[in-house]
């Protein structure tokens, strides 16, 4: 199994690089490829099982777009053929049509693989939490049981996902038919949206950031199944699930603050 992490020297904000480290702990036999900006990414000429890119600064987005533009069709092919791609934080914004920076008054064309527009407002930063449901859509689950998986093995259709946002940007467009999450609390694609991120085949683009896979062991288990591990066991699984359930409980408590839907 080959896991490729794109541009880790740039796309490493907020502890997201630990997602890959955690995957490598869960899949010790997997080959990990770290592709720097100055070398050709492995996915261009080789098969990869998972392509990962983490959040970056707004100026780094421009570098990444420039670097990935020659491989636009290849990325589209990977998405079409069901390869697993996980882009966290603002990484998936490079696939949108335009990135408009209001402060610097620049408008940069993205890769245009997603029918969305990104707008950066440096002094209207968006901080918040998200509690949402991820619908497995019949894939990955064993029993196909309806309801919400609680980490106790019922393997239902819906997984509850928790996460954090910190972004200068909002994305505009209609993702209601293919979101990554349906928000129960917190903002989605932008402040007015209740649908977070995008899912196209096995491409998962989410503005949630940080150690998403460590925070969400049930989603990680689902991801490992997609990667061909039928009965995955996570690294420190029990501890991860305990921490996840504690956070989930907090996120569900009405008194817990910080699920802002203000902003742009």
């Amino acid at each position: 199994m080959r896991i490729e992490s794109l541009f880790p020297e740039l796309c490493n904000l907020y502890g997201d690089s630990q997602n890959i480290r955690y995957l490598s702990l869960c899949l010790p036999e997997a080959e990990l490829v770290l592709s720097n900006l100055n070398r050709t990414p492995a996915f261009v000429t080789n098969e990869v099982d998972l392509l990962y890119m983490g959040p970056m600064t707004e100026s780094a987005q421009l570098k990444v777009i420039e670097r990935l533009l020659p491989y636009r069709e290849r990325i589209a092919e990977l998405i079409d053929n069901g390869t697993v791609l996980l882009f966290t934080g603002n990484a998936f914004e490079v696939l949108t049509e335009h990135i408009f920076d209001k402060e610097k008054e620049t408008d940069t064309e993205g890769l245009g693989l997603l029918p969305f527009q990104t707008e950066i407002r440096l002094f209207e930063r968006f901080n918040g939490k998200v509690l949402g449901t991820f619908d497995r859509g019949g894939e990955g689950g064993e029993s196909g049981a309806k309801g919400i998986e609680r980490g106790n093995g019922n393997n239902a259709e819906v997984i509850e996902v928790v996460g954090f946002k910190n972004q200068f940007s909002s994305v505009y467009g209609d993702n209601s038919s293919y979101p990554f999450l349906t928000c129960q609390r917190g903002a989605g694609l932008n402040a007015k949206s209740t649908f977070e991120g995008v899912r196209v085949n096995n491409f998962f683009g989410t503005s949630l950031l940080g150690p998403l896979l460590i925070l969400n062991p049930l989603f990680t288990r689902y991801l490992l199944k997609l990667l061909g591990t039928p009965n995955p066991t996570l690294a420190f699984e029990a501890d991860a699930i305990t921490a996840y359930q504690a956070r989930l409980q907090e996120f569900k408590t009405p008194q817990t603050t910080g699920f802002t839907t203000k902003g742009h």
């Binding site: 502890g15 150690p211 008194q255 817990t256 603050t257």
Partner: peptide, 15 residues
């Protein structure tokens, strides 16, 4: 402050 009901963003632990 977050401990009082904010559920702290712990992403920094992984930096």
């Amino acid at each position: 402050f977050d401990a009082k009901g904010g559920s702290e963003n712990i992403t920094w632990l992984y930096d």
